[in-house]
């Protein structure tokens, strides 16, 4: 369990998602899945966060919010895109107000597939995010 040496704090932001992935992210916090046992904590403050968890795709209005949140997070930081919409735009990719996946705005380290992504795969994505975080930390150290 060496790469759990740091317990990552997560900032969740809902892009233009249908809510499905968001509530699955929240479901990860609750007794059945309980990510807090790994030391993973959901925080509301970007300046406390190590991992940015984004659900939903990018549209005209939230593009600057996502950029802003990413900028406010301290280095090293990791972005996890949760769900089909965050990965590529998903079922809404052809709607007029959708610009595509999160990687249009910020660099994405882990892509979690699914519509809606299941809690198990979200937790898996976060664990892979921890590994990416560890690598980045070694690089900067």
């Amino acid at each position: 369990m060496s790469f759990f040496s740091r317990s990552p704090w997560i900032l969740h932001y809902d892009g233009s998602s249908c809510n499905g992935c968001d509530i699955e992210v929240l479901a990860c916090l609750t007794p059945l899945y309980d990510v807090e046992r790994f030391g993973v904590l959901n925080t509301g403050n970007p300046k406390h966060a190590d991992i940015l968890l984004v659900t939903g795709s990018v549209n005209e209005k939230n593009i600057e919010i996502i950029e802003n949140l990413y900028r406010q997070m301290p280095d090293p930081k990791v972005v996890v895109a949760v769900g089909a919409c965050a990965c590529s735009g998903g079922i809404f990719a052809r709607a007029y107000n959708i610009q595509g996946g999160i990687d249009k705005v910020v660099p994405v380290d882990v892509y979690v597939p699914g519509c809606a992504a299941r809690p198990e795969s979200i937790i898996d994505g976060v664990v892979q995010g921890i590994a990416a975080l560890e690598q980045k930390r070694k690089k900067t150290a």
Partner: peptide
């Protein structure tokens, strides 16, 4: 809403799509 396509349900926009 501040949409990317301005006035997305205008006749021109729909015809273009």
């Amino acid at each position: 809403y501040k949409t990317v396509t301005k006035v997305p349900f205008s006749h021109q926009a729909i015809k273009a799509r």
